[in-house]
Design a binder for these strands. Structure first.
Lengths: 348, 348
DNA sequence: CATTAGCACTCTCCCTCCCCAAGTGCCATC
DNA sequence: GATGGCACTTGGGGAGGGAGAGTGCTAATG
């Protein structure tokens, strides 16, 4: 008898068959059913023996004594490793994905369509995120006075992202002051990263002792109000396909919690960041989400990061039931992730 | 016996009591229960007689012979008319709303928080929408070259909204060309409505016959690509609190459809536009949503428009179960609608 | 004459019981 | 080692049977 986790080829084959049967039927798999499905004419009794071994090895569970077997998290992990790399994108998916994403030029649109198409191909929830990135190169800023002490700052980066931020200043500035400040920044710092611009301005303000330099006063005021601070806006986090969960979560209370969590977009961003910000390029399959989020019992995350120069600038993922078509979904996520990566790098 | 719809004061009182009991309990109301609740010591038998009349008049239904009565859509309509104007905002709601909306300066943030707070106070789904409005006064445009034939247009309106749009041009333009065009527009048209600017540019292009005027060529190219066309972006439609529906829709299939519909933000925008773009200022309660959308059986819409100079620029609404605390919700919607109106008019 | 008490009747809900189908584990056999 | 046979376990589902809540109707009552 092999050690837990160490199983022979016969066991592998049967385990795979069990997982696939369970995924497609949703019901505990019995030895009889399996012997009918399996090509090699193994008898139910033989399969029962193997199954018993697989239970010992931690790959299967029984909901109750006289029920069939159900794959454990460990089994899914094994299964995913097994099939990784083997999959090929189906022509239908290929068509669906390219026709949906065709002609997207701006990132928000891409994110929106991506989350949508992910939910379609996976029967799960599609998530797509891009970081606003203060590491982006500055293209243009504009300040517009909206009322007493109230200024709208618009920052455009070379990557084509637009951040706007309404601010309340301590001192009122005229539109002329604002234009002067914007011109100064645009003329001097175009092409710098937003981060560096911020640091530089901080320094120049510091060194400027002349109280009466109008420009510096304006810059200081704007700086203090965080004109160049780009927090992650909810607008860059897209979550679609929550309706798909209704079919997969029996427990209404838990379904409710799940929907609530998915609605908190910042938490989704954290979740993806936590699991996807790794060295690897590849698609990552996270089984056992319930460790971090109990309401996600029986759900898995299949996601991939998108990088620019080694740094994670975006991510996309499917959150779906453990009982999901992994091959299909992994391939789709992988394919879209490549497009995403390409899009981001094009802009960088 | 009064005509259908014509009922006496005794009937009114009992009908109101039935509706309120049903709203809070969720179960068909029986004569016995009601006689205990009702202050006037009317006996169950009397109430039964009245109930029979109310059934004839179309205000009540019986799920089955030996069950209590349930209010019909007609009854809810009556009830809502009855209580309209009588409600006062509870201190808790007042506190919740102002603390949530306090300090919001930009419209997107306001929309987001509004949809959130609406879902909180109503145990329904909160929806908040603002039109991008090409009727807004232009503050500033900026064009930024993103690659061959690819340009990012950023339009800032005086109302503080920022629209960005990635475009693909037929002819490539240099950044210098783009800056020149932007400067031209900013210098000549600041303060005009975006609509008017578009029309004016169209005309100037038309009249300009010189093929070699670089500026006009650039403008023409940008115009053709729709640089000033602001379609309604999904980013300005906020829908929150879908988790609340789980408790209210028994039928899983219908729940699924409902979630799907709520996710299609454009349809939500149409729905609100259809029901709220009226002359009235007031909160509107729409009972019988299933006529337009069958998946919304047993749900109502409580919403209000926000106007600038008579034109609808935004709207907010709660979509919740017919069994809802109308008084509470109507008051909250009304209060927030006033804030919304104020915010929009401030910016205009 | 409106109101009420009484009463027989009708449903649904829920609990219990019981059988059936599917599955298991183990032992003897090929 | 694989298989066939067999006794045992267990959840699901249908039948049956109150219990409870509610109704409509009729007769009595102020």
């Amino acid at each position: 008898m092999p050690n837990p986790g160490q199983i022979g080829p016969r066991e592998r084959e049967i385990l795979t068959a069990i997982i696939e049967t369970y995924i497609s039927s949703g019901e505990p798999v019995g030895s009889r059913t399996l012997s009918r499905v399996n090509k090699d004419g193994l008898s139910p009794a033989t399969i029962r023996n193997v199954m018993a071994d697989l239970v010992d090895a931690g790959f299967l569970e029984q909901p109750h004594t006289s029920a069939g077997r159900v794959p454990t998290a460990q089994a899914y992990r094994y299964y995913v490793d097994q099939i990784s790399g083997k999959a090929v994108l189906s022509p239908e998916d290929q068509t669906l994905i390219s026709s949906t994403l065709q002609g997207t030029v701006d990132i928000q649109q891409f994110l929106e369509r991506t989350s949508h198409v992910l939910s379609l191909v996976s029967s799960g929830v599609g998530v797509a995120i891009a970081k606003t990135g203060v590491q982006n190169a500055l293209e243009h800023v504009h300040f517009s006075r909206q009322g007493p002490n109230k200024v709208l700052a618009v920052v455009v980066t070379k990557s084509g992202m637009v951040h706007d931020r309404m601010m309340r200043l301590e001192r009122d500035l005229s539109q002329t002051d604002l234009d002067t400040a914007a011109n100064y920044i645009n003329a001097n710092f175009r092409g710098w990263t937003v981060d560096k611009v911020k640091a530089e301005i901080a320094q120049r303000i510091e060194h400027e002792r002349t109280q009466y330099d109008q420009l510096m006063q304006s810059l200081k005021e704007l700086y203090k109000s965080g004109a160049l601070t780009a927090e992650q806006p909810a607008a860059n986090i897209f979550v679609e396909g929550v309706a798909n969960l209704v079919a997969n979560e029996e427990d209404r209370e838990r379904l409710r919690d799940l929907l609530k969590t998915l609605e908190e977009k910042e938490r989704m961003a954290e979740l993806l960041a936590a699991y996807l910000d790794t060295r690897e390029e590849a698609v990552r399959v996270v089984i056992g989400l319930e460790e971090a989020m109990p309401q996600m019992r029986n759900f898995v995350l299949i996601g991939a990061p998108a990088r620019v120069g080694g740094e994670m600038r975006g991510s996309l993922a499917v959150i779906g039931p453990t009982r999901m078509d992994y091959q299909h979904t992994i391939t789709a996520v992988s394919y879209i992730a490549q497009l995403f990566d390409k899009l981001l790098n094009e802009h960088a």
